[in-house]
């Protein structure tokens, strides 16, 4: 049972953290809950469909269909996250401050919320299909402890959900003054980490063969495969053996994200 719990929890935690951050970041945007829930739901349905087609997906692109699929949806999520950050830099402050603008903000905001629903949906999709495959394997039997494993799986899901909720509540405790900056930093780091991960999938598929030297190896101190490593991997894109290319892409997305947000929200001269 514990084994099943850990397997499912490990898959769920990444999506859980992302959902928590996105929920907190869009707290002030009206209608954001609906979109996020929609994203989660679409992700779950997508996971079931993806799980059913795992075999055929795997056989695409000389056997590297899964990697290319993962790299692509991560790239989509990176674009959506960056776009959301820019949108929040343009509108976020005004929205939080002035109620009269709320109507306009909501109308404009739908586009940004759509982007967030896609981010949440892809996060659930990436991790979810493996959970579905695993639980399906348990359900069709062949293993003695099926009921214990099903229970473990359910608990893993529940704990993953709790992580998502705690992330959300924890972020809301941040004082208003810093809230906007903290959530946009978090989103920039998420995007950079996902971009590096997307590169790593392209490398695994053998599609990218440049700059493949390892920058550092910290696997002995903080393994990426353990739970703390995995959390850091999701939050800031921690990798225990990054390649030069992953590192460059990571830094590039990070500086583009910070640079753009800073540039947009720079103080402007105003004529009164």
């Amino acid at each position: 049972m514990i084994g099943a719990l850990i397997i499912v929890f490990r898959e769920v935690i990444e999506a859980g953290l992302i959902i928590g951050i996105v929920m907190a970041a869009t707290q002030t945007v009206m209608g954001s809950r609906m979109w996020i829930m929609g994203g989660v739901l679409a992700g779950i349905i997508g996971s079931c469909i993806l799980a059913a087609f795992t075999g055929s997906l795997a056989s695409l692109f000389d056997g590297f269909g899964q990697e290319i699929f993962n790299a692509s949806i991560l790239a989509v999520a990176v674009c959506m996250l960056t776009w959301h950050n820019i949108w929040m830099a343009l509108n976020g402050r005004a929205m939080a401050g002035e109620l009269k603008q709320a109507g306009i903000a909501v109308r404009e905001g739908q586009k940004s919320l759509m982007a967030l629903a896609i981010i949440v949906g892809t996060a659930v999709l990436r991790e979810g299909s493996e959970v579905v495959l695993f639980l399906y394997g348990v359900a069709i039997g062949g293993r003695e402890t099926a009921s214990g494993m099903a229970l473990g799986g359910a608990l893993g899901l529940a704990i993953g959900g709790a992580v998502s909720f705690l992330t959300f509540r924890g972020l809301l405790k941040i004082p208003n003054r810093y809230f906007f900056s903290v959530t946009s930093w978090l989103i920039t780091f998420l995007a950079a980490g996902m971009a590096a991960q997307s590169v790593s999938f392209l490398e695994k598929a053998g599609l990218v063969e440049v700059l493949q030297n390892t920058v550092w190896d910290s696997s002995k101190y903080l393994a990426e495969s353990g739970i703390p490593g995995r959390i850091l991997h999701t939050l800031i894109g921690y990798s225990d053996q990054p390649t030069v290319l992953q590192f460059i892409v990571y830094l590039a997305v990070l500086s583009i994200g910070f640079g753009l947000t800073k540039w947009i929200s720079r103080p402007r001269l105003r004529t009164v």
Binding site: A75, C79, W83, V199, V249
Partner: peptide, 19 residues
Amino acid sequence: TRALVLSLTLVALSSPLRA
């Protein structure tokens, strides 16, 4: 970022599989 990721993906997809 979008342009960067897109061009990276395109470069990647156009290089031959060398399995």
